[in-house]
Structure formats: structure tokens, C-alpha cells
Design a binder for these strands. Structure first.
Lengths: 174, 174
DNA sequence: ATTGTTGCAAAGAGTTTGCAATGCT
DNA sequence: AGCATTGCAAACTCTTTGCAACAAT
């Protein structure tokens, strides 16, 4: 009994009106300014809170859950709401500046898009730490498998769950 | 503001009392009977509805969402509830007879565990079809990456999202 | 002045659980 | 009889949204 039909907010600027240059690269750290400029092209206005969130998100460059980001932003801007965090992250995803991951059945995690290359994740089940890695061989095999099945690849996601080096050592010490 | 502390039901039989043989292989199709026997060792009683669900789940051998399974079982046992589906699937997972996947941010999907070998998935974003595949090369590379990072692997999950052969053809025909 | 943004509270979606009635053993 | 199972409704968690007040242009 689930209806996933979402009644869109009528205020939303239609995608075809969005700037093509909105997909900013943040390899150079002025991604924030660029994004803020891009906002105008979507009919957005400047917002101090949004700027703080985005700046923090870019600087930290971690795999944030909404809760984590909320807690950190709260230290900077006391009365921030979850809604604003959610809305800002959604904006970043829409703009191609952030990407969502669902590791296992946990909350969504948001990561900054700042590398051309696709990368995968080692997820520590003890401490929650996330380690990125890139492996061309795996990528190639994935594409080979897809080809075998005549499958048109849009994206892929690989997670390795387990215990990170640090947590293994910590365990032994006890 | 999330508290993931779960107040356990006191009725639950403690894990150390569970049968060691509960992890049944369903490669041979009598997995159902075996499971039903195993239930007794966990202090469970026979239940017609549960049996129907499990039997159906085993026979169909698909990647079920709870909703899908609910709808199909409803045809067999009219007044079944979501709770029962959820509880039965949880039981199967606890017994090692089923496994959960979260493809993207969609509902959980439950699949029967009936192969020794780990397999990965091609997920069609058009029709929702799921194609399993096994690739030793990828497995080996994954283990190599983990070793490099001194990471102790517990499990891993790889999904390739895209459009399946059938949906590609269908699109062209229109 | 117009239109976007925010916080709040409420609503959704998926899942779990307490409870009284019912079913197994 | 004693305890597990079920359906139902309510609770829970994560996320989205309607709305009135506020801020940017």
C-alpha cells in the first residue's frame, strides 16, 4: 500500500530551465562560489545558512549522514532545522555536487562529488568509517559482465563491509 | 535524534539456545521441512500461514519486496497481514535462509539463500528486474583491495544499475 | 513588491511492536 | 493449560512538505 507518486512543488523551476554549467567541479576549492552563482540560474536566492552548510560540506569532504551534518552545522548556526539540511543536500544532489549512498540498511549518506573517477567503498561495521578505493580491474570486469547480459549500465555501486585496520587493532589490545 | 536502541521482546529465545543446525541449505528442495523442524528448537510452533509464506518464498525464488510477497500470499491466504510477512522474513533471515538487499534507496528486498557462491546483481531501473551474476575475477580483486587496506571482509555487495536487454528493445520498438 | 528560504509541525513511507484474540502442542 | 502466532493499530525512524513568518532581490 505504498504510493510513491510525489506531488511536485509547483514552485520548482523546470529542469530544462536549469543552467547547463551547474555541474560544477569542486576539485578546485572555489566550488562554493561557483555553486552560489549557479543558484541564480535556477531562480534561487542567496541564503547564509545554505552557504554555511555547503561550505562545511565541501571542506569536510566526508560521507555525511543527515544527522551528522545537522549536528555539526548546529554548532555554527544554532537554530538550524533538519529540513534545511535535507533541502540543501537535495539541492547539491540535483546540481550534481553530491551523491547519495545507502550502505546496508542504514541512513542515506551524502558525499561530495569531486573526482572524475568512480570509486567504491570499504565500510567498517564497527566504527562506521568509510574508505574509498578505485580499482580499474573491477570496473572493467563490471562492464564485461554487463556486456555479456546486454545490459546498459547507468551506474554501479560496490561496498565491502567488514572491520577496518584500526578496529581490528583496538580489539586485539583489549 | 535517532535512538536505535531496540527494546527486545522478553519472550525471545536467547541466541545461545538456538540450534546450530538451523542454518539449513535449501539447495535440495526440502528446505521447508527442515526449517519447520528447526523451528521447534527455537521454541517455535508450527503455523500454517508461516508455512505457506516460506513455501511460496522458496518456490518462487525471487528478489521479493515485502509488498510483492504480501500481495502474492494474499491470493493464497486471504487475511494475511503485513506483520506476518515481516516477521516470517525476519525469521528466515535470522535462520540464514534469506538475505536482505537494499538496491539504491528502495525497499528492502529478500532473496533466498541457496547457493554457496556469492553473487551480485544487475538491477534494471525500468522494469525492476534483477539479474544475478557471479564473477570470480571481481571477487578476487575485492579481496585484494581489502588486503591492501588491512580490511577484514565480512560481506560485500555489488550492484550495477541500468537498463536490461528487454527494456532496451522495448524502447526501440516504440 | 515579489519571490525564495526557513522552522515548525504534520504527513508519508517502510518497518517494528504491544496487545488481545486465536491457534498449536 | 501454557505458550507461540496473528491481525490490528499504534509507535518508530527517516524523509518530505504545507504553511506562515522572514529574508533576498
Amino acid at each position: 500500500m505504498k504510493m510513491k507518486v510525489k506531488i511536485k512543488n509547483k514552485k520548482e523551476v523546470p529542469p530544462e530551465k536549469w543552467s547547463k554549467r551547474i555541474r560544477v567541479s569542486t576539485r578546485n576549492r572555489n566550488g562554493l562560489e561557483r555553486l552560489l552563482k549557479c543558484q541564480a540560474k535556477r531562480g534561487l536566492k542567496f541564503s547564509k545558512k545554505r552557504a554555511v552548510i555547503i561550505e562545511h560540506f565541501i571542506k569536510a569532504d566526508r560521507h555525511y549522514t543527515v544527522e551528522q551534518l545537522y549536528n555539526e552545522i548546529k554548532e555554527i548556526v544554532p537554530n538550524i532545522s533538519y529540513s534545511t539540511i535535507y533541502r540543501t543536500l537535495k539541492l547539491l544532489v540535483d546540481c550534481g555536487m553530491a551523491r547519495t549512498h545507502h550502505f546496508g540498511d542504514t541512513d542515506a549518506r551524502f558525499e561530495l562529488v569531486h573526482k572524475e573517477q568512480h570509486h567504491d567503498h570499504l565500510v567498517c561495521e564497527k566504527c562506521g568509517r568509510i574508505i574509498e578505493f578505485i580499482h580499474d580491474g573491477i570496473e572493467k570486469f563490471q562492464n564485461a559482465v554487463a556486456k555479456e547480459h546486454n545490459f546498459l549500465v547507468k551506474s554501479h555501486e560496490l561496498q565491502i563491509f567488514g572491520v577496518c585496520k584500526r578496529c581490528q587493532l583496538r580489539k586485539r589490545q583489549r
